[in-house]
Design a protein around this nucleic acid. Structure first.
Ligand SMILES: [Mn+2]
Ligand SMILES: [Mn+2]
Ligand SMILES: [Mn+2]
Ligand SMILES: [Mn+2]
Lengths: 217, 217
DNA sequence: ATTATTTTTTAGATAAGACTAAAAATGGAA
DNA sequence: TTCCATTTTTAGTCTTATCTAAAAAATAAT
């Protein structure tokens, strides 16, 4: 698998959230910031390699083999993110681009040793689950903060839009994985919220609360 | 810098042992297991990028910029080797190929954090010095074991030929960096040695003793 | 059912990096 | 100096991964 091939497999995997749906050429090209014609080329190649099932004009879906490879790229990406944050003290807004490179390092042994070194983490620094070596994911039950009602208490379990600026915004306000959130008030008009997060009061717009996953306590 | 460009710069750097000598196209091609014609192409490109001074038919030498970049690739390679051995418990015969990939990860911040995480090591698992961020190397005074005389005591400081099989041979006999070696006897005929290494007696051929660096005690 | 619009594929071009085969330069021997 | 063997470069081809522009298919709108 070349680096480009791996990136395509991962993109299909992420676009379908690990499910076995089909992905259109355009969607794939957009995600990879490339052109649809390039995606078509690659899908044909991946089809020949039996990594995807590709039907002209109908998009592509991962084969079992392709899905497994994709899951292992995601596994590596997230394990490396844990390493960078836990061991090298990077902020959660600084690790994505580096993990984007590290995920392509080839050595099955390395992945398993890294996993052990990190005490087999189940989620990455953004709360995203880490697939195991068979590609299985332990799904945790999480909902969006915007769907919480006043007086509810919940714990921050993940970030939906892991844009660097958003992550930086959160950590600057000391909001992090595990933070305990109590919804104090919800404005019906614009669905903005007043919330208590770890004993601090914050005013949160709808766009913020739509990008935070929580687990009700 | 592409991966290929970095590999060429590193190869020139290593072939001249960090000195500023010229390297021939053939020597370079051999080191990189490629063809001289490919090396010529790359040298012309690196010359255009001012990374080497290349004169047709006369070989190439690193520019200050090229030498600095090369030193940082070597720095990364050796830091990652330390990480793999010290933190992930790899054997010293298992890390080269993985470091060969990791050395191309681009993130200045990462290198410095990794260095700190490892307590700023000065040598890699094979005893080779790690350049600092300016490319400076702390030279340690080491000689070959084959040049030691009977009754001398010395400490193992490095391996010359870091071939995997040789490394495995050594660790299997529990010979490692820091081992204390006393030369008991030296056979004039084939220059083989009887040595005591960490309280164990070993018979060592000339080819072995020529590939072990020691520091007299 | 025809058009029109959007999506997708093909055709052809480009750049990096490697290769083979052939030409040119170099350095040593006669 | 002249010839020869070796080294090095050039010329042309190949693969991977991209792009643009044009053709074809699918979808949506009359
Ligand atoms: Mn990421
Ligand atoms: Mn992540
Ligand atoms: Mn190495
Ligand atoms: Mn080494």
């Amino acid at each position: 698998m070349t680096r480009a091939e791996e990136n395509y497999l991962k993109a299909i995997y992420q676009l379908t959230a690990g499910m076995n749906q089909r992905v259109s050429t355009t969607a794939l090209a957009e995600r990879l910031e490339t052109k649809p014609s390039s995606a078509t080329d690659m899908l044909q190649k991946l089809h020949d390699k039996a990594m995807v099932k590709y039907t002209k004009y109908k998009g592509a879906q991962l084969s079992p083999e392709g899905r497994h490879i994709a899951s292992q790229i995601v596994r590596k990406h997230r394990l490396w993110e844990v390493f960078l944050v836990e061991k090298l003290a990077f902020g959660w807004d600084q690790v994505h681009d580096i993990a984007e490179q590290l995920e392509h390092i080839k050595s099955p042994d390395l992945v398993e040793r890294l996993d052990a070194f990190l005490d087999c983490p189940k989620v990455d620094p953004h709360g995203d689950p880490i697939p195991d070596k068979n590609g299985n994911i332990e799904q945790i039950n999480k909902i969006l903060l915007c769907d919480q009602t006043p007086n509810s208490r919940s714990m921050l379990m993940g970030i939906k839009d892991t844009d660097d600026a958003f992550l930086k915004y959160l950590s600057q306000k000391n909001i992090k994985l595990g933070s305990v959130i109590t919804v104090l008030d919800k404005e019906p008009f614009d669905e903005s919220m007043t919330v208590d997060i770890d004993q601090n009061t914050h005013f949160i717009s709808k766009i913020i609360s739509t990008n935070i996953y929580v687990q009700p306590l």
